[in-house]
Design a protein around this nucleic acid. Structure first.
Lengths: 197, 197
DNA sequence: GGCCCCAACCTAGGACCCCTAGGTAATCGC
DNA sequence: GCGATTACCTAGGGGTCCTAGGTTGGGGCC
């Protein structure tokens, strides 16, 4: 009989698509096998187990996301860069809810550290904040604030957490305004460079 | 044989405890039944199904959380109130990770609207922001910013998303500083009162 | 105290899922 | 064309959710 032509990459890609359709926590090896017209046991040649599949999807998504952010931010600085970064971030999260959810699954710190996507994400984020004249440890504090707000907003929006009549896009822009003024007036501390991530 | 003396409230409470121990997405009717020394089918007399159990845990947690926040905020205003609110929020999220996760599960808007906890949460949050002299639609935008940052920070912290050596508590305080200045300098818009939630 | 009745708890079983062990057959390298 | 690799299979065990229907404990009422 004809084979489905599976490979680890194709399986992970299909899992990511499935996640976007039914939610990351609802992607199942059985459903994935069904989609390929294959028995679920067959997938174990390409993927160690469900946990392995999940981290692979997370790494795929993290890479795609930072790609989009990087091109959006390229050549910009200051508030321009902030708005471009945030826009690309939220656009990806809304367009690919399952993939986005994958990126916020508890991940083994070892694989995270080894991931190129995570390294590039840290690089670009810290780079963007240099325009505000921040240095460690303020830099890390500011990065944590941005990550928190971006993630929190997209997570809440994804689960339908904003009920008010107010337009969500406008609230997003106002939040960015607020973050921008917070960054501009960030109280500088005395300390020197530290590790970042 | 002696009965376990189950009731819907006891089942939900135990599910919340279990969630705090093993994670909200890992609470299972089988494990819950095992904890009571009972067959899983027996739980269906008290709870409609797993989804029903989850929303009940979410409502329980939302109530507990807003209780803690309300007492923390009582009698405070301005930045004092902001810090107290945020502190109680994060304290609850860290002490009860499973319950906290429950509160950010997609919830039926109907049951959400009917929930007293959600109503009180909105009330207290909007009330806190009146000290900053905001009115609609800025109020809703500001509430969304606060919710996003609080939730994002706690969610990231819960999954171990902050790897840098920098003390997390300090980053939290700096984030609150940033939000405070953002609120103080919030650009007022021309529009009038609108619906809030 | 004895009886009734409700509800707490049970058994049985179907559907779906994860995962392992070991087999067959298609395809690639030579 | 042939051997080795590997894509895919069958078989099966264990866990979970949930339904349908039976049994038994215990509180209320006479």
């Amino acid at each position: 009989m004809a084979r489905a032509g599976l490979t680890a990459d194709r399986v992970v890609e299909a899992a990511a698509d499935l996640a976007d359709e039914v939610g990351f926590e609802n992607v199942t090896l059985s459903a994935l096998a069904r989609r390929f017209g294959v028995k679920d046991a067959s997938l174990y040649s390409h993927v160690k187990n469900l946990q392995d599949l999940r981290t692979r999807v997370a790494l795929l998504a993290a890479g795609e996301m930072i790609d989009g952010i990087a091109t959006a931010v390229a050549g910009r600085a200051g508030k321009d860069a902030l708005v471009a970064f945030a826009g690309a971030y939220r656009t990806y999260a809304l367009a690919h809810p399952g993939r986005y959810a994958a990126t916020h699954t508890p991940v083994d710190p070892a694989v995270g550290a080894a991931s190129d996507a995570f390294r590039r994400t840290a690089e670009i984020t810290y780079g963007m904040l240099h325009a505000y004249g921040l240095s460690e440890p303020d830099l890390t504090d500011a990065v944590r604030l941005l990550r928190s707000t971006f993630h929190g907003f997209c997570a809440l929006e994804a689960i339908g957490g904003f009920h008010a009549a107010r337009d969500v896009q406008t609230s997003w822009e106002r939040a960015l305004d607020g973050l921008h003024t917070a960054l501009e007036q960030w109280p500088r501390s005395e300390r020197k460079e530290e590790d970042h991530a």
